[in-house]
Design a binder for these strands. Structure first.
Lengths: 365, 365
DNA sequence: ACATGCTACCGAATCGATTCGGTGCGAGCC
DNA sequence: GGCTCGCACCGAATCGATTCGGTAGCATGT
C-alpha cells in the first residue's frame, strides 16, 4: 500500500501522534518569531542570552532536535554534499590503497566546508539509483574519467555544479589533479640504467578499464591515462622493454605477471619496473619462487609509495606519490569553486625513494 | 567577502546572466501548469505524449536539466541518502577487506531505493563538519558502535531516522546485523582439537578501539564486541590458551604477533587461532621466518574468508563470513524501516572452510 | 439522452527553514 | 532635549518542487 511522507511522519512519532515540531512551533512556544528562533540555531546573527535560552528550552520541551537539513539546504542553495564518482564498482575501488588515501585527503579537505562525501558510481543500471543527476550535490569529484562518464558530466556542469577530476581528462575547462607520471617513471628507469641494467621488463596497470592480463604489443591500445603515461616514462629510457599488463593493481596480479616474465630462464630481465607497489610486491614474490634473489639477481621498482602490508623486510624502491595530498587538493579545488573562484589544475610530482629492492645489475652470464 | 547563494547562482550562469530556470518556467514556456510539468519528470502520473513532448522541448530550450534535488527532497521528505558511520578514520576503515565487502553489499541494497551512501565518521572535531545531526539523512548505518556514538545516536533516533547497526550494540530497539562469532570460532577450535592440537595460541583483533599490541591477561578488559565473542569461542575449547592482541587487522600485525608467539622455542604452540584472515597470513609468515612449516609444524586458522592478496599458494582454513550479505541485510533493514515496517535483527552464520593451513598436530617432541 | 467512468490536466496548499530590510527602544553625545 | 547609533528582534518573501482533490471533456453502455 502506498503511504505519503506525511503519514509516515505521523506513524514514526509514536509518543504523541503529532507530527514533528518545526522551528515555527518552537518559536511560538518560546514567544519569539521564527526568524529569531532560526538564528538561535544557525548563529548567523547575535541573539541575547535570555532569548537564546527561552528558544533552547522551548526546543527541548517540544523535542525539537534542530533544523531540518532538507529545508535548510533548499533555502541556502547548498546541501553540504560532495559526490565522489568512481569508474569501478565501489567495493573494488577501495581495494586500492592509493584511492583509499585519496579519500582520506578528500575527506579532510571537505570537512571544514561542512561537507560530506557521497559515494557514486558512474554506471547506473536501473536508472532509479542516485546519480550525478538526481543527488543533491554541491560539487563532484571524479576519480578517473571513462568515456561513459563524459555525457553525465556535461549535464552536471550544465546544472552549474563544480567538478574536479583526479587522474583523468574530462575536458579542458574541468580542473584536473594529476601526477607527473611519465617523468617520475622515467626517473626510476634511469636509476636502473645507472645501476647497469639493460634487460628490463615492465609490468603495467590495466591497459583498458576492463583490461585482461597479457603482453602488450605495439598495436595494443592503452586507454587508461595512468598506464600509458607511466609506460611512456619507462620506454623513454628502455625503448625496447617488453611490457606485461596486469588485470588490476594486486599482489596476485604482480605475481602472475612475474611468473610469466621469469618463465623463460634464458631471457630473464635483470630488472622489472612495476607500475604499482602492489604489482611490485607480487613480482618480488614470483622472483623468490623462481629462485631469484632480490635485488642480487633481479631488481624491482614499484610506484605509489604506499605501505605494502606483508612485504617486510623488503622496502621497495619506488616513486612516492602524494596520494593524500591529491585528495586534499581536489577538496581545495572544490572549495575554491564553491566560493566562485575558478580553480586551477594541479600537477603533483612524485619523489623517488630508494629501498632495498634495487641493486647493481648482475654480471652478464 | 560574503556572498549569498542567490548571487552565486547568477554568477555561475555566465551565458545568460539570468538565474537557472525552474520547473515553473518550463511549465509556462510549454503552456502547461507546473504540476503537469512536474509529473513529466517524475513519471508519477500518466501524461499524454503530446504534452510530454512539449514540456521536454521547453525544458531543452530553457536549459532546464531536471528538478532540483534539494527542493524535491524537502517536499517528499526523503533525501535519498543513507549515512554510513565509521568508528575510525575513513581512510583506515577501507583497509579492512571485510568492511569493503560490506560497503559493496550495502551499496547494492540501497541502490534500488534510489539512495546513495554518505560517508560519516563519528568524531567531529570542529563541529562544523557534516554529522549525524546536520546531514540530510533518510537513514543511518553504524559500523560498530563505540560509546562516543551512543549519544549522537539518541538524537538521530529522536529525529525519527531509522538506524541499523552492524557488528555492535546500540541498544535494544536498534536492529542489529550480527554474526555467530562465538559459535563459529568454537568450530575452528574444535577442528584443531580434533586434529590433536593441545597447545594453542590465539591472536586477537584489538581489544579496545585504540588498543595496543600485547598479551591479553585475565584482567584485561576487552571492549570490542567482535574480539570478545571470538575469543570466548576459542576459550570454550581451549580454556587456557594464551591470547595476543594485535593493534589492527593487518598482515604486519599478525606477523608481529606470530614472532612473539614463536619466539620461545620451548613453548611453541602447535596451532594458532587468528581472529582474522589478515592476521593469520601474518602468523604464517612469522612461522616461515621461524623455520616452521605450515601446516606440518604449526597449524593456523583465520576468520573472515576473504581473499588474502599475496598469500598463495596457501589457502587458509577459516570461517567464511557472509560480509557482502551483511551489508545487503543492513540495506534491506533500512529499506524496511523506511517503509514503516520495523526491521528485525539478523544474525548471520559463518561457514567453516578447511584449507591447507591446518593439519594433524605434530607428534610430541 | 442520461448516468457512468476514465483520461489528462490544473490550482493551490505545502514541505521547513533562511534572510534581509525594517522597526522599536534604550543609551550616549553635544 | 533632540539626534544619532546600535542592538535585538520581527515580518514576509523566498527557495523549487510535489501532491492531491477536483474538473472539463469525451467515450461507453443501455
Amino acid at each position: 500500500m502506498f503511504r505519503t511522507g506525511y503519514d509516515r511522519q505521523i506513524m514514526s512519532r509514536q509518543d504523541t501522534g503529532t507530527r514533528r515540531a518545526t522551528i515555527s512551533d518552537v518559536a511560538r512556544e518560546a514567544g519569539v518569531s521564527p526568524s529569531t528562533a532560526s538564528v538561535v540555531f544557525s548563529g548567523k546573527t547575535p541573539v541575547s542570552d535570555a532569548t537564546r535560552r527561552r528558544v533552547l528550552d522551548a526546543a527541548a520541551a517540544l523535542g525539537y532536535t534542530g533544523p531540518d537539513p532538507r529545508a535548510a539546504s533548499l533555502r541556502r542553495g547548498r546541501s553540504g554534499i560532495v559526490g565522489v564518482v568512481f569508474e569501478e564498482h565501489i567495493g573494488t575501488a577501495f581495494l586500492d590503497p592509493v584511492k583509499t588515501l585519496m579519500m582520506d585527503g578528500l575527506a579532510d579537505a571537505v570537512t571544514p566546508l561542512g561537507a560530506g562525501l557521497l559515494l557514486l558510481r558512474d554506471h547506473e543500471p536501473t536508472g532509479s539509483g542516485p546519480s550525478l543527476m538526481t543527488a543533491p550535490l554541491d560539487a563532484a569529484v571524479l576519480i578517473g574519467c571513462s568515456g561513459l562518464l563524459r555525457e553525465s558530466l556535461e549535464m552536471v556542469r550544465a546544472r552549474g555544479i563544480p567538478v574536479v577530476v583526479i587522474e583523468g581528462d574530462a575536458g579542458d575547462d574541468v580542473p584536473r589533479i594529476g601526477l607527473d607520471n611519465r617523468e617520475a617513471q622515467r626517473q626510476a628507469a634511469s636509476h636502473l640504467r645507472a645501476l647497469g641494467h639493460r634487460e628490463v621488463a615492465v609490468v603495467t596497470l590495466p591497459a583498458r578499464v576492463d583490461g585482461a592480463r597479457g603482453w602488450l604489443h605495439n598495436d595494443t591500445a592503452v586507454n587508461v591515462d595512468v598506464t600509458r603515461e607511466r609506460l611512456a616514462g619507462a620506454l623513454d629510457v628502455f625503448p625496447d622493454a617488453p611490457a606485461f599488463a596486469a588485470a588490476g593493481s594486486f599482489i596476485d596480479e604482480g605475481f602472475a605477471a612475474g611468473r610469466e616474465i621469469f618463465a623463460d630462464a634464458d631471457r630473464r630481465p635483470t630488472a622489472v619496473i612495476a607500475q604499482s607497489d602492489l604489482l611490485a610486491a607480487g613480482v618480488i614474490r614470483a622472483a623468490e619462487e623462481a629462485g631469484l634473489r632480490v635485488p642480487d639477481d633481479v631488481s624491482v621498482t614499484g610506484f605509489d609509495g604506499i605501505v605494502v602490508d606483508g612485504l617486510a623486510p623488503y622496502e621497495l624502491t619506488t616513486l612516492v606519490q602524494p596520494a593524500t595530498d591529491k585528495g586534499r587538493a581536489a577538496g581545495a579545488a572544490v572549495a575554491a569553486m564553491l566560493e566562485g573562484t575558478p580553480a586551477a589544475s594541479i600537477r603533483f610530482t612524485c619523489t623517488f625513494r630508494e629501498g632495498n629492492t634495487t641493486g647493481p645489475a648482475p654480471a652478464a652470464a
